[in-house]
């Protein structure tokens, strides 16, 4: 094989293909199975960083304020996400409490922290320490962030709650809604391939080991 353009292997069917140059905003799909091979690199790191920092602020708001309140015959009750997980724990459901806490708070928070650290390091021209470990952690935790499902769950719960009393939607409900969109925007502007290319392009590269 005489290489003209670099080769790339599809991660879903392993077909070898030649890379082609891409105009901005375009995506290359595998010729055999249609999986996304790569997308054109972003010109700056500012866009993913902007989404990411906003998402971090909104994540904080979403967890500080109550999601929803319920008023039954004069006595009121409101819950935050932590409060809900805490209640489950004390009702003899620790596994579920942990699952809820992981999928709605810990995973999104860890993802934002890792991406933020990598992007900020690259922005200041440094190779992030432990890059391989961080990228692998990111890949492993990613499927377990389920905020959009949680949002739908809250909506179903709201409908069921109207049966018991007056439902009062609170700050965190809106915050979670916005956060869902922000996380999607952050994830789509954070490109693994682009990040590795930037790491490789750094002038003085330290070796990991």
């Amino acid at each position: 094989m005489t290489a003209s353009a670099p080769l790339i292997a599809c991660h879903e069917c392993d077909l070898l293909q030649r890379e082609i140059a891409l105009p901005p905003g375009e995506v290359v799909l595998c010729g055999r199975c249609g999986a996304e091979l790569y997308r054109s690199a972003h010109s700056t790191l500012d866009k993913p960083l902007a989404f990411l920092l906003t998402a971090a602020v909104v994540l904080t708001v979403a967890n500080v304020y109550p999601i929803v309140g319920l008023e039954i015959q004069g006595s009121g009750n409101a819950t935050t996400l932590f409060g809900a997980a805490y209640a489950l724990w004390h009702q003899g459901m620790p596994p579920i409490a942990v699952l809820v806490f992981l999928t709605t708070f810990l995973v999104p928070a860890v993802e934002l922290a890792i991406m933020g650290y990598i992007l900020l390091s690259l922005k200041y021209g440094r190779r992030p320490a432990g890059m391989t470990l961080l990228m692998r952690a990111l890949q492993h935790v990613n499927p377990w962030g389920m905020l959009e499902v949680f949002m739908l769950g809250v909506i179903v719960a709201l409908v069921k709650l109207t049966h018991y009393g007056t439902v009062i939607p609170d700050m965190a409900l809106w915050a979670f809604g916005i956060l869902t969109l922000l996380l999607a925007a952050t994830a789509s502007s954070f490109d693994i391939r682009d990040v590795w290319d930037r790491v490789e392009a750094l002038p003085c590269r330290e070796v990991d080991e």
């Binding site: 319920l70 997980a85 499902v149 179903v156 719960a157």
Partner: peptide
């Protein structure tokens, strides 16, 4: 679609946290 099956867990989570009004009504998972 895998993740969407978590829906019912979240519904119960919210209900169990809020409907705790003593003798009037209590929801548990």
């Amino acid at each position: 679609v895998g993740r969407w099956s978590m829906l019912d867990i979240y519904v119960v989570t919210i209900l169990a946290a809020l409907v705790q009004i003593g003798s009037l009504a209590t929801i548990k998972a």
